[in-house]
């Protein structure tokens, strides 16, 4: 019975995948592809609900069992429930809820996102210093020199821009050498994605369960 259900899951995955893939090449199959993609979008919405429900459940369990750091979980749940309440009540036409929602969005969410990005600047500079301190070799020196040349080239300082070789050197680094490497990495990633997809198509990988 287990083998039959496992084969059935594989048949569903392979047949839907084949229909969607054919839709990209055969116009006759495109309407079916659109229907399947629409269903997948709706199901992704349900999957988001499952994910958020799981997040809620994990933090709720932490609070209930008074696990380590449960006060942080309390902050997560309170903020999650507040924005959900404001959103759903605001959708009924109560403008005050929309205003509070905007305050939370512009006062907390966006500043926290930008601040995390800003902290990244400090972390990146610190990691560069550690790289030079802990692992001095040709590769790390080439890496740091590339970073310095590109940052210097991007700076809008008059005395830096007056240096005649810098602009050309920066262009050669970023548009020739870096392009070659980046193209190799991109092709490698695409080949990896292609192979992963094909393994699912041939039933070699079954991430939905079964052997």
């Amino acid at each position: 019975m287990k083998r039959i259900s496992s084969a059935a899951y594989a048949i569903i995955a392979i047949s839907t995948g084949t229909l969607v893939l054919l839709g990209y090449f055969l116009p006759q199959v495109a309407p079916f592809q659109m229907i399947l993609l629409d269903w997948a979008v709706i199901l992704s919405g349900f999957a988001v609900f499952v994910g958020v429900g799981n997040l809620f459940s994990v933090h709720y369990t932490k609070i209930r069992t008074r696990s380590k750091g449960y006060l942080y979980s309390f902050a997560t749940l309170i903020s999650m429930l507040t924005i959900l309440l404001l959103g759903f009540v605001g959708a009924l036409g109560f403008s005050v809820f929309t205003e509070v929602e905007n305050v939370l969005l512009n006062g907390i969410m966006i500043p926290v996102e930008i601040s995390l990005m800003a902290v990244l600047a400090v972390t990146l500079v610190y990691s560069s210093i550690r790289l030079l301190r802990d692992r001095v070799n040709v590769k790390s020196i080439v890496f740091i020199l590339t970073v310095l040349f590109i940052l210097l080239g991007a700076a809008s300082s008059p005395w830096i821009n007056a240096l005649p070789f810098l602009g050309n050197f920066r262009l050669i680094i970023s548009q020739v050498f870096a392009t070659g490497g980046a193209r190799g990495i991109l092709i490698g990633v695409a080949l990896g994605a292609l192979m992963t997809g094909l393994r699912i198509f041939f039933g070699a990988d079954r991430p939905y369960g079964g052997k």
């Binding site: 969607v20 997809g197 991430p207």
Partner: peptide, 18 residues
């Protein structure tokens, strides 16, 4: 089997995208 459906569609989209 719903996950199998999503995986199938995702694999096709990944192949086409790649």
């Amino acid at each position: 089997w719903v996950v199998a459906f999503l995986v199938g569609v995702g694999a096709a989209a990944a192949i086409a995208g790649a």
